[in-house]
Structures are given as structure tokens and as C-alpha cells.
């Protein structure tokens, strides 16, 4: 069962009526097949039109949808093999950031990403996708490993932000993020970053400083959460919707600004309504970019990545 978002209320109501009617029809009490079909068509149209014109704040909610595919769903649908690797060799193994060797369409790559978890239990285990220093240091280790063994790096970015807590600070959250960003920017292998859900600030940049950045149609990527921005600049978190619009957090905005390279389409009604279809589109895009990058030499790759960030926002 899909759980509906606040703005999907009209669709939810329609779908409820449809399932009630369906029950009646199943009981064979009345012949309402035509009515049912009409309503289903209406619901589909409504879903399509709603998702065609989502506001930035609505997209933020879609990007955070609890049923949206998460790291392990992508692993299942996109990669035919996954060999998980663990630990930062210094402190621990952070379950908020996962990674390992993987095969995508026969190619060997290193895949690294945030995992938010799908159930209450797993959300706690994965700390809601909020990485700690040991998570970013694991990412650094895996990226360096990929670099030495000539494996392209694919990242799946989905975090509200790096974890803000005492232990994260005392173990050097800022340094871990900075160093992870620096490692991205030092790789001699192709790197494709995918913003699949929330691209939350430094915790996202640390895994997204790649020469190719792909982003799902309804994903968001921003310097601070709309609520955070609103509470600082408007002095109330209630203005999150305005803040989301003003900050330009959507894939279309970021494409225009040159921050991302490709928008990956989602199924009608968002990736959470059809994991498989969403993953097919992402897989196609990842493969296309890996292909394009495969012809470049080590120094050309490094140069392309550096040039991308140096020229961003230039006059």
C-alpha cells in the first residue's frame, strides 16, 4: 500500500472510493465495471497532472517519502552483484553509509551510498541515513581502494545531512566530510554521483563531488533543509515552502545552474510507486555516463572534474 502525502489527498480519496467500489464489484452485487474504469482513469490523470507540477516543497516531501527506494533497493534492482565492504579501520562501521564492489551490466564498480532504512528498526540501525565521521571515512577508504584498482565509482546520495551530535563532532565530522570531498576530487577513475532522494548539504557533497552528477526528477539537493533555511531567514520553520522555492532545490533548477548533468525520469507518481521502473531509468543513465567517461585518461578525468567545480557559477 502506498502511503499518501498531504498534497495527494484528492488522489487518496479517489483511490479509496475505487477500492470500495472494487469490493462491491467483487461481491457481484452490481455491475459497475464501467464506473470503476472511469474512476481509475480519473485517478491516473489526477496523479499525472499533480506530479507534473509539483512545487519545490512538494518535491522535497516526495524525495523524503518513506517508501522511496533506498540504497539496498537500488542494489537489488540495478546491480547484479554486490560485495559489501565495511569499516573505517579506525573506529567503527557506520551503517548510514554503505558500500562495496558491485557489478552493473557486467562492469565492475565501487558503489557507495547513504541508506535511510525502510522500517522503524532499520531506520534506527542506519541512523536515518545521517552519516557519522566513520561513515565518511569508510567512503574515503572505499574510494581510495577503487582508485588503486581502477574501478569506477558510483555513489547514491540520499541524506537529510550528516549527523549533528556530540560524538560526531568529537570524532571530527567536519574533517571527515572535507576529506571525503577531497578524495572525490582526487580520483583518477570515472565517478558518477546520483542524487536519488535528499541531497542534504555537506553530507551530500562529500559523496557527490563527481564529474557527472545525475539527479532523479523529484529529488532535491540543497545547502540547508527548507525548514532550516526558513527558521533562520524567516524566523519560522512554517515558511519552508517559500524557502524551498527561493533556494532552487529541484532537478530542473540545478540543471539550469549547471550543478547537475542529467535529470533521470521517475515513474508517474514518483519513484516510490514503482521501484523497478525507477531503477531501470537510473541504471540506463549510469551506464550511459560510465560509457562516456570510459574513454578518458586519468588526467583528463581529473581535469574534467576540477574544471567543472572551478567554473560553476562563473560569470
Amino acid at each position: 500500500m502506498t502511503s499518501y502525502l498531504e498534497f495527494e489527498k484528492p488522489i487518496a480519496e479517489l483511490d479509496e472510493r475505487i477500492s470500495e467500489l472494487q469490493e462491491t464489484a467483487d461481491n457481484g452485487e452490481l455491475d459497475i465495471a464501467a464506473d470503476l474504469k472511469r474512476l481509475q482513469k480519473k485517478s491516473e490523470r489526477l496523479l499525472k497532472s499533480t506530479y507534473k507540477s509539483l512545487t519545490p516543497w512538494q518535491k522535497t516531501q516526495v524525495a523524503r517519502h518513506p517508501q522511496r527506494p533506498h540504497f539496498q533497493n537500488y542494489i537489488t534492482h540495478i546491480f547484479e552483484e554486490f560485495e559489501p565492504l565495511a569499516g573505517d579501520r579506525a573506529f567503527g562501521d557506520d551503517q548510514a553509509i554503505m558500500g562495496g564492489f558491485a557489478k552493473i551490466d557486467g562492469r565492475r564498480v565501487m558503489v557507495i551510498g547513504h541508506e535511510k532504512g525502510n522500517t522503524t528498526e532499520s531506520r534506527i540501525k542506519h541512523n536515518f541515513g545521517m552519516g557519522k565521521p566513520e561513515g565518511y571515512r569508510k567512503a574515503i577508504r572505499l574510494m581510495e581502494l577503487a582508485d588503486r584498482f581502477h574501478l569506477p565509482v558510483v555513489t547514491l546520495v540520499d541524506t537529510s545531512g550528516a549527523f549533528p551530535g556530540i560524538e560526531a563532532e568529537e570524532r571530527g565530522q567536519a574533517e571527515a566530510i572535507a576529506r571525503s570531498t577531497q578524495t572525490c576530487l582526487s580520483l583518477h577513475v570515472p565517478m558518477v554521483a546520483c542524487i536519488v532522494g535528499e541531497g542534504g548539504s555537506g553530507g551530500a557533497v562529500a559523496l557527490a563531488s563527481a564529474e557527472r552528477v545525475l539527479m532523479y526528477e523529484h529529488a532535491v539537493y540543497s545547502v540547508i533543509s527548507p525548514e532550516g533555511c526558513a527558521s533562520i531567514l524567516w524566523r519560522t520553520a512554517d515558511k519552508a515552502s517559500e524557502a524551498a522555492t527561493a533556494m532552487k532545490v529541484t532537478a530542473a533548477d540545478l540543471k539550469k545552474l549547471g550543478v547537475i548533468d542529467e535529470i533521470v525520469p521517475e515513474p508517474v507518481g514518483g519513484a516510490h510507486r514503482d521501484h523497478e521502473q525507477a531503477c531501470v531509468a537510473l541504471k540506463t543513465a549510469i551506464l550511459k555516463h560510465l560509457d562516456e567517461l570510459s574513454g578518458l585518461s586519468d588526467s583528463e578525468l581529473l581535469q574534467a572534474r576540477h574544471q567543472k567545480f572551478l567554473s560553476l557559477g562563473e560569470l
Binding site: L185, S201, Y221, V223, F309
Partner: peptide
């Protein structure tokens, strides 16, 4: 921190400055 009024472009100054450090 980052200048929120410049949105994602302020965030992109993190990798930009880091490229300079690498140089």
C-alpha cells in the same frame, strides 16, 4: 557556514575551494 541566499551555488564552493587546495 555557507551563504543560504546563494542556494546550491554556495554549497558548490566546498568542492571548488577543495580543488584549489589540491592544486
Amino acid at each position: 557556514g555557507a551563504r543560504m541566499q546563494e542556494g546550491i551555488l554556495s554549497l558548490m564552493q566546498m568542492p571548488k575551494a577543495t580543488v584549489a587546495i589540491n592544486q
